[in-house]
Design a protein around this nucleic acid. Structure first.
Length: 198
DNA sequence: ATTTTCAAT
């Protein structure tokens, strides 16, 4: 895309949107999803810049108008028509981990698209509705890597998905207790993923 | 506008 186009058109979100939505201590009634795609070539992962960006869930006053971020994303992937003869790796950074239904959709996608690897890093665990634990386990069983975002991932997103306007080198402004909350969440996730009862 | 778990009130 053109270097002079609007930040959003280049797949960049503004700083406050990122900080408001990816903070692992603040709950939001919306979900943002950043994604990037790589292709395996000569045993190396080559970034595909045309398949990089971010999106958010659709909200609406009527239930049928709403759509979780993961569903929208799966629709986008389908429109890419990735070559089934090649090997891809998609990395997702999402503010809320997938709910049971979204985990099921992603699991189904992975089973039907063996040429695609999926890594999901979530800022927070969405544990509001029942069934999310089994959903996350199924996702892992289908080959997805599921993990919480560490400082490293937050900083990576800050550098790669956020528009810093004039100040390209603006450092990631970490918030208090980022690490301790990550520690809490990653232990919780480990417990979920290790649990055998389904 | 508020409170705030992919809104609902």
């Amino acid at each position: 895309m053109a270097a002079g186009s609007a930040p959003e058109a280049r797949g960049l979100m503004d700083e406050q949107t990122f900080l408001d939505n990816f903070n692992n201590l603040i709950y939001r009634h919306k979900t943002y999803l950043c994604y990037e795609t790589e292709r395996m070539q000569d045993d190396l992962w080559i970034p595909l810049d045309e398949y990089k960006g971010f999106l958010q869930n659709k909200s609406g006053s009527r239930r049928w108008e709403r759509c979780h971020a993961e569903s929208i994303f799966l629709g986008e992937i389908a429109s890419w028509n990735l070559d089934t003869e090649l090997r891809y790796r998609i990395t997702v950074f999402i503010s809320w981990s997938p709910c049971a239904d979204c985990a099921d959709e992603l699991t189904k996608f992975l089973r039907e698209n063996r040429h695609v690897n999926l890594r999901i890093f979530a800022a927070r665990i969405y544990d509001w509705y029942q069934g999310y634990e089994a959903g996350l386990r199924a996702l892992k069983a289908a080959g997805a890597e599921v993990a919480m975002m560490t400082f490293q991932e937050f900083e990576y997103c800050w550098k790669n998905f956020v528009d810093h306007q004039q100040d390209e080198d603006k450092p990631f402004p970490r918030w208090d207790n980022l690490d301790s909350e990550y520690e809490r969440l990653t232990k919780k996730l480990a417990g979920i993923l290790q649990n055998q009862e389904d």
